[in-house]
Design a protein around this nucleic acid. Structure first.
Lengths: 244, 244
DNA sequence: TCCTTGATGTTTATATACCAATATATCGGC
DNA sequence: GCCGATATATTGGTATATAAACATCAAGGA
């Protein structure tokens, strides 16, 4: 009813996972990429029909998104995609700046040779996606790269914690990325990080990662300038000094 | 069938929340307190009957617990309480040591007088629970105290991230607590932290919090000595040096 | 003896239908 | 135009049924 063309199709799903997980991944990607825009309603009946699943797994997926504050469930009213909430973007930045930074240092300290081929494959795919200017793919590979670092640090489950706390931040980074398309800069940073990891240069990898983290702040500026409509509240809420 | 007496009763539930959330809190508390022991099966039919809710909200609660790795869902086999997983205890410690430490410092920097009464009420209730030697209550208030600090730091949602990452750690702390019952030491630390927060002494509060964080390591020793049966894997897996 | 095979029962995973509660929109009356 | 009754849509929760996967164990053959 709402859209002329359906946003979701059954063939998008990854059949190896449970239905709930498949639907969750699909919805999350749609929200992060802004294909599902802030304030857009999520109709259980409509989406379950589009995807060919029942309300049960769909509801489970939506609940998960609600715990990440990506959607807002208003009982007896509807479920809606949340706008980008400045304080939660900053919270995500705080999480990356603390845990992920610590894990990245640990990964350098404990780097094991068995990860070499994983990193090299990841970097190759990144360069490939960069050449094709494929935002979706590159952004997914960016996440995979950092998840790989968590594994390398010996705390693979920690990625879940980080990922669950950076939904709002990801929307912001992703949007800035699609507007700026600075593929090569990010690729170069990742390649440099890998070199430092491989040589167990803890301070070296931390320094580069800090640069990448700080590049979020210009992204926030871009977001505010280009798409104030997707942000909740006033510009002043982005008080970056709060976390420095 | 499994137990002579039912672990759960309908009257335990907090009616202000949704059924899913009520069941989630109840199950989580039971797991953290070890009333639901590791390897114990969680039967959807049985528990939904005990609590007087249908399988749908119960399942949603179980799924949430599964994302925290407190339970393991084996499709077509059963759902079981996980043992305490050393690497995830350390991960929880890592999370507290990084994010929560940062937030605690922020709370001191931004302390607002409106929080004074909240802290004072919390401390009063802590001392009351300590007098009564009420482990359940004191442990819950301990968590509430740290959550309050997150609020005070301006990132109330961040508690969710911390809480979701420290389930395994909490079981360990909680068990050591019930074996040691060092109520007064923890209360004194909290009172001292509040004093430092109130006077906006960032380094001061950080120092005390660090002491409290470090007290986890003796707790791990207690856990290994007294209850090796609830731990997954070998003692050697607790390689604390990994995160120092 | 050992291995394979298949029957059987249990459990989760999903689907479906239905009811309750409630927020919102609609529409009529003034 | 404003207000209130009513209709409608949506989530929350219940109940039940079916499917699919798996563990277990007995039976049977090499």
């Amino acid at each position: 009813m709402d859209q002329g063309v359906a946003l979701f199709h059954p063939e998008q799903m990854d059949l190896r996972l449970s239905k709930s997980s498949q639907v969750y991944e699909l919805l999350r990607e749609a929200i992060i990429s802004l294909r599902l825009a802030p304030d857009a309603p999520i109709l259980e009946r409509e989406i379950s029909a589009q995807l060919g699943v029942s309300r049960t797994p769909l509801r489970e997926a939506i609940l998960q998104l609600a715990t990440e504050n990506l959607v807002r469930i208003a009982p007896s009213d509807g479920t809606f995609v949340n706008r980008i909430i400045p304080s939660e973007v900053l919270q995500g930045q705080l999480v990356r700046d603390t845990i992920e930074m610590r894990l990245t240092r640990l990964a350098a300290r404990n780097f094991g040779d068995t990860f070499e081929k994983d990193f090299e494959l990841s970097l190759f795919r990144q360069s490939s996606a960069a050449k094709r200017q494929d935002v979706d793919e590159f952004f997914a590979l960016d996440n995979e790269f950092h998840r790989l670092i968590c594994q390398c640090a010996g705390f693979p489950e920690a990625w879940q914690t980080i990922h669950g706390a950076t939904g709002q931040l990801d929307r912001c980074r992703r949007l800035a990325f699609s507007l700026e398309a600075h593929y090569s800069a990010v690729y170069d940073e990742h390649a440099a990080m890998y070199e430092k990891l491989r040589t167990r240069d803890e301070d070296g990898v931390a320094e580069i990662f800090q640069v990448q983290l700080d590049s979020t702040f210009p992204s926030i500026d871009i977001l505010l300038r280009e798409r104030p409509d997707v942000v909740a509240g006033a510009e002043a809420d982005f008080d970056i000094a709060l976390i420095r």
